[in-house]
Lab assay of single mutants.
Amino acid sequence: NQASVVANQLIPIQTALTLVMMRSEVVTPVGIPAEDIPRLVSMQVNRAVPLGTTLMPDMVKGYA
Rank of each mutant, 00 (worst) to 15 (best):
Q2D: 14
P38V: 08
S24Y: 10
G31S: 01
A48S: 13
P38C: 14
I37F: 03
A3P: 10
S42Q: 13
G31I: 02
R23C: 06
T18S: 10
D36F: 13
T18I: 07
V49L: 09
A48F: 11
P12F: 04
E35C: 14
V20L: 12
P38Q: 14
D58K: 07
S42D: 12
I32R: 00
K61T: 14
R47N: 09
P12G: 07
S42R: 09
I37W: 03
A16T: 13
I32K: 01
P57F: 06
I11T: 00
I11Q: 01
Q2L: 15
Q2S: 13
V49E: 02
P50F: 07
Y63L: 07
V49C: 07
A48R: 11
L40Q: 00
G62M: 12
G52C: 04
P12Y: 05
P33E: 04
A34L: 03
N1L: 15
R39C: 15
S24K: 13
V49F: 03
P50S: 14
Q44K: 13
L55W: 02
G52W: 04
T54V: 10
V26W: 09
Q9T: 13
V27C: 06
P33M: 06
G62I: 04
I32E: 00
K61P: 13
I11W: 02
E35R: 06
P57D: 07
I32L: 04
E35L: 12
D36A: 11
T15H: 08
I32D: 02
A16L: 10
P12I: 04
E25K: 07
T53R: 09
A16I: 11
K61Y: 14
D36L: 10
M56K: 07
Q2I: 09
Q9A: 08
V6C: 05
N8I: 05
M22W: 03
T15V: 12
P38L: 13
V5G: 02
M59F: 10
V27W: 03
L10I: 10
D58N: 12
G62P: 05
R39M: 13
P50E: 13
S24N: 06
L19R: 12
P33F: 08
S4T: 03
V60G: 02
Q9Y: 12
M43E: 04
T53Y: 10
G31R: 01
R23L: 05
G62R: 06
A7V: 06
P29R: 04
P29L: 05
I32P: 00
P50G: 11
L10K: 13
V26Q: 09
V5I: 13
A48E: 13
E25L: 07
L55N: 00
I37K: 05
V60C: 01
N8T: 13
L19Q: 09
S4F: 03
